[in-house]
Design a protein around this nucleic acid. Structure first.
Lengths: 203, 203
DNA sequence: GCAAACACCCCCCTAAAGGGGGTTTTTATC
DNA sequence: GATAAAAACCCCCTTTAGGGGGGTGTTTGC
């Protein structure tokens, strides 16, 4: 029997999930955590085979927690379960060691299929995410670390001069990055840049 | 017995909810719709007393659907059930006739309490939203229709001249609105303005 | 009846962003 | 060891945004 832990702050969803998993007979729920902190405290005791992990936790990012868990328990499989269907989020989760990715509007039976697949060492993407990851790559934007950092500072409203001072670079360099970001995202100005950054969760 | 309909595209959540409501004994689930279109088709047959309505539907806004349902079926009670905890969203839902508002990380028993309360003609806000609505009003930003329209055009990257042309106003008027928006939201420039607009769902 | 909020318009001036063109070094990846 | 991508840097010039003023009339709610 597969041992599953659920980490998600949506209590209504976790209650439903517990029932769903228990009834299926393929797995048991070893524990439920509603925050990253609660997860860190208990996960060592639960020793689950599979962790159903949300991305948007109240006290931190599931993306970071995923990396943390995989470092501490390399054998533990992470199955992301979130509302986010943005390329950047999925890619970061997979880069950080997640074995699978489900979105919350997937069918209930995809959850069970996902649990079984990742427990068996396979990777599992729900249908919609599978399509997303297979799109022509020019539609799935991927930024370098530096570009992400810059984009974050731009969205916070810093001017080129301020950014330059903050990260010890020339204002002209910042300008170059901004131009490049506009080009890369196909944005005509800062307003659209910020919009895309937030909508596509690029930062 | 209270008759409830669920309109939400998160299938995992709706499955869980159905069980939860059925087990409680206080209500029955008359039907489930995973989209606004499906809801429009079936709601007349179901004739529920209470509709659990999500804001973020795949084919439209729950805010608009709420207004629509209240116009067509004034006696039907709408109980919003969403992830959004932004003042603007809550206020728009309530203005459009919703009797209650739950966020998805509320406790499961709040759902049942909410259903009973709105069915009895009362209004019901879950704890977190109740706190939000009672905050000092300067923290809860509310924009006029015109301001929202302008903000939307700004986030789409239009320049003052383009906006002026589009909505037949003087570019100087647009400039005035922008200045006022910056002041009202406490944003130092367009980047922050766009960020706040999206984060607080002002548009 | 009167204040407050909304909608509308104009001036001047400076700061910042955007569009064009470049260069070099480092660091992965094949 | 070649190739490519990321990272850092620079100049010129034009357009747009932002900061500071000023003002009008019209709804809307108490």
């Amino acid at each position: 029997m597969i041992k599953v832990a659920i980490v998600d702050d949506h209590k209504i969803l976790t209650e439903g999930l517990q029932g769903l998993i228990a009834e299926s007979g393929i797995a048991t729920v070893a524990g439920v955590a509603h925050s990253a902190a609660a997860c860190r405290l208990s996960i060592g005791f639960w020793k689950p085979d599979v962790v159903l992990l949300d991305v948007g936790l109240p006290d931190g990012s599931g993306i970071d927690l995923c990396k943390e868990l995989k470092t501490q328990f390399p054998g533990m499989k992470i199955l992301a379960l979130t509302t986010h269907n943005e390329y950047t989020v999925v890619r970061q989760m997979l880069d950080n060691g997640a074995s699978g990715y489900l979105i919350k509007n997937a069918m209930a039976d995809e959850v069970l299929a996902g649990i079984q697949a990742v427990a068996a060492g396979k990777t599992f993407l729900c249908h919609e995410i599978d399509l997303l990851m297979k799109r022509p790559q020019e539609k799935n934007i991927w930024l370098s670390q530096r570009e992400r950092e810059l984009l974050r500072l731009v969205t916070e409203g810093l001017t080129n001069a301020e950014i330059a001072e903050k990260i010890f670079l020339s204002p002209e360099t910042i300008k170059g990055y901004r131009k490049n970001l506009l080009l890369k995202l196909g944005a005509r100005n800062t307003a659209v840049l910020v919009k895309m950054a937030l909508e596509q969760k690029l930062i």
